[in-house]
Design a protein around this nucleic acid. Structure first.
Lengths: 337, 337
DNA sequence: CTGAAAGCGCTAACAA
DNA sequence: TTGTTAGCGCTTTCAG
């Protein structure tokens, strides 16, 4: 069933069918009705590949999301979708797996969907200028921090938090409550991801506040899974390292840690305080409620779209926006006597 | 940058470029190297729309997932992806919003991607035969239960749990522990979704076990959000209805409920028992750990692919598989004295 | 208001 | 081993 068949069945030309399908004004009522009738009868659906192939422009903005159903992105995506719509563009979203190449995906989307711009969610930190050059339209990295990259900042925009500083502040919260033996729960050890950046913030705080330090206080697991965090922390507890608090680089890891602590007989927050970074929904439903530094998810999505549309419309150049975190005071912190 | 440009730049014909790009054997080493060099230099990426347009067949299996990042689907999708790969097919996944039309999406994918079959995740229950007819390839509904639909079961396959029975068994667990005043927390009230089916299972159990019944024991909210469940339960508690247990139709709702109970001064499980259905990861990290009837997620993904490939390969016809749930005994249940 | 025809970028016969 | 060519299904001038 192609446009040709519809044309034949409706007794009109291909162009007329196309016009009806695209709501062009200059079609007679009769022709329109005839075509629509046939379209409905045969449940004809135009081939999008053919459409895209022939089009030379669009109002599409691409969104590439890394990671299947990362709860953390849901709110951001919703916000991005709403803002793109509001600005008069169309969102084309593509989810990719953890190990897929987002730059390649973006480059393909750029060509196929005739994108005006791209937003990447959950990008890696290690792209080379070379790799990035396959994308020729403006793009903004959301929740991304090219701390280790050597990218030319004038070639793209970004919006995120200062992960290093957030970690520093999380540790500071513990310090202010009298904690000096603070373990860090991270994914890595050195995986060039956000985990590493936050770990460095922890180290900076440890140094600044003159806290206890050393490998004994590092709980390193190989993923961002709650289950792995649980197992890792449980095993670590057996070593009987002296500690009074845990800083987890993500809410998810903190959730695993809190269960491990409970199963290990440690009371949170009475015996051990726990703090993290992210502010996902689930961590607010724990008992005790997790204290965490929240990423401003709506704001991030909002700003990402704003940055991109400003560039597309020629209003501004590339910018790098660092948004502040806000602390959600739960029940997982207590002051040492 | 098109295949034509590459051909010109490499000094060969477009067919040769096409052959190189598609790894066809009959190309001389020199030609291949020349083409590859140009491709790399200019970061040429073939236009997938054009490719798809010209292709008449594929080994693609489409997967349509409803709902942005539903944690419940992650495991199923991972499993589906692995099985599709294993069976020698290629997975083409598309995520759609809660209010998007999955049948239309499926129909479009069928035509564009030349799919051999489709798997729907999280489908609605209310499609008409008419609507479904726009899909002409075999498809299987995963986690779907056409309890209220009037679909011809011989036209599609499905795999899921018996939601009504699962709810019944959940309530039975409470009954066996002496509970007679069991509230139900659901999303709806009558939204034709899985919530409704589980609610009917609750009603059946209430009748069979001669439990206390009535509207007072129904806590109805308008979403599957933890936050809404929290607010809803909190408000409901103010009514001071007599109850000793809550059956939540999903883990997410149970999480909201447990926090509301805690904030309202009710101890779980000492004063109130809570049970749910789903078995998502987060609910295992609660304190107390939620007792819930787990859906066999891996198995579901596994069987969905198996059903579909068997049909594609002509080995079998359509089937409707009902998988058993398994109880995860957490800490949210206690027996009444 | 309508139709004929060109061509989007690519693959796959078919020739050479 | 290579190049020529005919479409895939659609949109869009350009004539009528």
């Amino acid at each position: 069933m192609t446009i040709k068949d519809i044309a034949r069945l409706a007794g009109v030309s291909i162009s007329t069918v196309s016009r009806v399908l695209n709501n062009h004004p200059d079609v007679s009522k009769e022709a329109k009705e005839k075509v629509l009738a046939v379209v409905n009868e045969y449940k004809y659906i135009p081939n999008a590949s053919a459409r895209e192939l022939v089009k030379t422009s669009s109002d599409n903005i691409g969104v590439v999301v890394r990671g299947l159903s990362n709860p953390f992105y849901t709110k951001i995506i919703t916000e991005i979708g709403a803002r793109i719509e509001e600005a008069g563009y169309t969102m084309v979203m593509q989810q990719i797996g953890t190990s897929d190449d987002e730059i390649l995906t973006g480059a393909m989307m750029e060509r196929e969907k005739r994108l005006l711009g791209l937003i990447f969610l959950g990008g890696r930190l290690d792209y080379t200028k070379e790799q990035l050059s396959s994308i020729t339209i403006p793009f903004v990295q959301c929740t991304f921090n090219n701390q280790y990259g050597n990218l030319d900042k004038s070639n793209y925009s970004s919006v995120g938090i200062d992960d290093n500083q957030a970690a520093y502040e999380a540790v500071e919260q513990l310090y202010k409550r009298g904690h000096r033996n603070i373990a860090v729960l991270l994914s890595g050890p050195r995986d060039m991801s956000v985990s590493q950046v936050r770990y460095e913030g922890y180290l900076r705080a440890v140094k600044d506040f003159n806290l206890e330090s050393g490998d004994d206080l590092i709980i390193s697991i190989n993923s961002y899974n709650m289950a792995d965090a649980y197992t890792g922390v449980k095993k670590w507890l057996e070593k009987k390292i002296k500690f009074t608090a845990i800083f987890a680089i993500s809410d998810g890891l903190a959730m695993g840690a809190m269960k491990a602590l409970r199963d290990g007989g440690y009371k949170v927050p009475d015996e051990v305080s726990v703090i993290a970074i992210d502010g996902i929904e689930a961590s607010e439903y724990l008992n005790p409620v997790l204290t965490t530094l929240c990423q401003p998810m709506e704001k991030m999505g909002n700003r990402a779209v704003e940055l991109l549309t400003d560039i597309i419309e020629g209003k501004k150049g590339h910018e790098h926006v660092v948004l502040p975190t806000s602390i959600r005071l739960g029940e997982s912190l207590s002051a040492l006597k």
